[in-house]
Simulated assay, not measured.
Amino acid sequence: MFLGTHAPKLDDKGRVILPAKFRDELSGGLVITRGQERCLYVFTEREFENLHEKIRQAPVTSKQARDFLRVFLSGASQERPDSQHRVTIPASLREYANLGRDLTVIGVGSRAEIWDTEAWNDNYEKTEAEFSNTDEEVIPGLF
């Protein structure tokens, strides 16, 4: 399970060192793809395969499902960490997420997310206020 907030740097070759707490889970390979809110999603290969199976069940007749598949899968990149636990983030994904040198990597349970630090701080500030003011059940059965 991916948890916590980490602050790695992006090097000149577009590589990031995986947070130590994520290394074991991602050592066998991972998939990086476009996420929502202009971040990147990072999945283990197994989790990505499970997600893909669920996505494949969407009706081909649904334009929204087709559009989601196109955006989500066309940007996906299988990667394998090197001996120094670095992963290359493809240029197209770095551009999509507007990544600068300073990154924020967060654990979101079944996936990690990679954010440009400034974008993460802006997003967090907005969503934390909404989180604090939540007065109805957002996730059924949680609270």
Rank of each mutant, 00 (worst) to 15 (best):
V87F: 03
F68P: 05
L142Y: 15
C39Y: 01
G100E: 08
I32R: 00
I139N: 12
R23C: 03
L93A: 06
G29A: 07
C39S: 08
I89C: 01
S110Q: 14
Q64E: 12
G107K: 02
Q57F: 07
I114C: 02
N121C: 10
I89G: 00
L30V: 07
A20Q: 10
R70S: 15
S62N: 11
S132W: 12
I17K: 08
E137H: 13
G107N: 04
S83A: 11
T5D: 06
P59H: 10
E37T: 09
N50T: 14
T33A: 04
N121H: 11
R94V: 04
T5A: 13
V31S: 01
L142E: 10
R101N: 14
H52N: 15
S77P: 02
Q36N: 15
A97N: 01
D12L: 09
Y41W: 09
N98Q: 15
M1P: 09
E37S: 11
H6Q: 07
L26D: 01
R101M: 13
L51P: 05
A76F: 03
A65G: 08
T5Q: 12
E47T: 12
L26T: 04
I114D: 00
F131N: 12
K13I: 07
L73K: 07
W120E: 00
I106D: 02
W115T: 02
D67I: 15
A76E: 03
L26N: 01
V31E: 00
Q64H: 13
E37M: 09
R86H: 05
G100N: 07
E118P: 03
